[in-house]
Design a protein around this nucleic acid. Structure first.
Length: 462
DNA sequence: TTTTCCATGT
């Protein structure tokens, strides 16, 4: 026992020292994403081939944005003339990795060389900026579109309007909505839908209705989406009767409710405790010619999970199989999540395997739920198993799960595994905080406070 | 890849 503790302290100490030696602590967090020098990077196979791989399909394979850029350069040096498909493929890649500095540099080239761009490129970039919380950049780019010799249509206007609404810039959105005509845009259903959504997000039912009226006055046809926004709002408020009234209204106007409409109503029913009515609606919709979709099953399954009726949720999943519905990640995530929360990680893992056998690829959320689920029941071997699969599919657990996993493995005496996890964390620029290290050493030493001091000392020396 | 939706939550 004493021996293993000494060993543990030794290993942790060695690990901390290795870290400090390798790099100053403060730079660890901000170190560039493991960018290898270009000489170490594996060479692409294109130059030797008789028929070179087109740049576009080549760049799509690349993970690292820096590598994508150098590939772009290599092709250029080989005499390849980059045109719009090249530039857009590169820009999509860079934007997805949030390398906006490079995006701007490349956009500069595009402008200089007068490359003719499609509007969708700008729409995608604006959305990526917004997702990365660079709303200012998104706004700037929207205004710059004409300077790229690209015609700005209602599509980018609507995309931009939506970005403003989704990022708490309601006033600016309302402002350009009002000035749209002067800006040369004729608003369509989508524009009105976005504005209605904006008002509803603020909880302004009356104002949303005013926009709805305005829409009718201007002879812009409301769509299912318009009704869904309004119905969804009422359902969330628990005003089911009003929501059903709107359903009737849309039917009278010859508009067909879709699966989302029914899903919203079913959710509303569940939230006021009318669980069986929600279930009935699944049959009703089918009777009326609207085939249930995954969303509808999802609503019911979530409701069952929330009420702790997990076995019923399981049979619903079976029913889907019987009815030949292709079950997706979300469906499985719902079930796996509730099983995990109930401490039934082993069972959740069965579904985690089942989904993959059925050809359904787990996403970041699935892995996280699974890792956390195993940690919750202190099955750290199970967690490690999922953790490995997670790394292979290039996903990453939450920092808390990482810490918990390291700690758990330590306590089980699986020191090599704990160090492996720590190493993988470091590769992803994820660091245990001072508290984390302290807890780790304290755990390793069996609860001694002295050990905590050791870490503080080790770090403060630096 | 211009708007509505079941779960997570970087």
């Amino acid at each position: 026992m004493i021996h293993s503790r000494t060993k543990a302290i030794g290993q942790i100490q060695a690990y901390v020292i290795k870290l400090i030696d390798a790099q100053p602590f403060h730079t660890l967090r901000s170190s560039k994403r493991n960018a290898k020098p270009s000489s170490e990077r594996p060479r692409r196979a294109y130059p030797k081939r008789r028929k070179p791989i087109p740049f576009v399909s080549n760049v799509k394979e690349v993970q690292d944005p820096v590598e994508a850029l150098s590939l772009f350069d290599e092709y250029h040096q080989m005499g390849f003339k980059h045109d719009y498909p090249s530039y857009s493929a590169l820009l999509y890649k860079l934007a997805r990795c949030r390398n906006f500095e490079a995006v701007e540099a490349i956009l500069g080239h595009v402008q200089d060389r007068n490359i003719h761009c499609r509007e969708t490129l700008f729409i995608v970039l604006i959305q990526h900026y917004a997702k990365a919380h660079s709303v200012e950049k998104a706004i700037e780019l929207f205004h710059q579109i004409p300077s790229f010799n690209c015609v700005r249509t209602l599509q980018s206007f609507n995309a931009f309007l939506n970005v403003l609404i989704e990022n708490d810039r309601f006033c600016e959105a309302n402002d350009i909505f009002g000035r749209s005509y002067k800006m040369g845009f004729r608003l369509n259903t989508v524009s009105f839908n976005i504005m209605i959504k904006g008002w509803l997000e603020k909880g302004e039912w009356e104002e949303a209705c005013k926009v709805f009226e305005e829409m009718l006055e201007k002879k812009v046809q409301p769509s299912v989406v318009t009704y869904n926004s309004l119905i969804g709002f009422l359902c969330r408020k628990g005003e089911l009767d009003k929501a059903m009234g709107l359903l009737e209204d849309m039917r009278q106007k010859g508009k067909y409710p879709n699966a989302v409409t029914y899903a919203l109503l079913m959710e509303g029913m569940c939230s006021v405790g009318k669980h069986s009515d929600a279930k009935k609606m699944m049959f009703d919709m089918e009777y009326r010619g609207c085939k249930p979709q995954l969303v509808n099953f999802g609503v019911l399954m979530t409701d069952l999970g929330k009420r702790g009726k997990i076995d019923e949720a399981k049979s619903l999943l079976n029913e889907m199989k019987k009815r030949r519905f292709k079950r997706d990640v979300v469906t499985y995530n719902i079930l796996i999540n509730y099983l995990s929360k109930e401490g039934r990680a082993a069972e959740a893992y069965k579904y985690f395997i089942e989904m993959q056998i059925g050809g359904c690829v787990p996403n970041a959320a699935t892995y996280r739920i699974m890792v956390d689920g195993f940690c919750r029941v202190e099955d750290f071997e199970g967690a490690l198993k999922v953790f490995n699969a997670m790394l292979i599919s290039r996903h990453c657990p939450r920092l808390e799960s990482f810490e918990y996993l390291v700690m758990g493995l330590m306590v089980c005496g699986k020191l090599d595994d704990a160090c492996f996890v720590l190493d993988e964390m470091r590769k992803r620029d994820m660091q245990l905080g001072l508290e984390g290290w302290k807890n780790l050493v304290i755990k390793a030493c069996g609860g001694g406070i002295v050990a905590g001091g050791l870490v503080t000392e080790l770090i403060s020396v630096h």
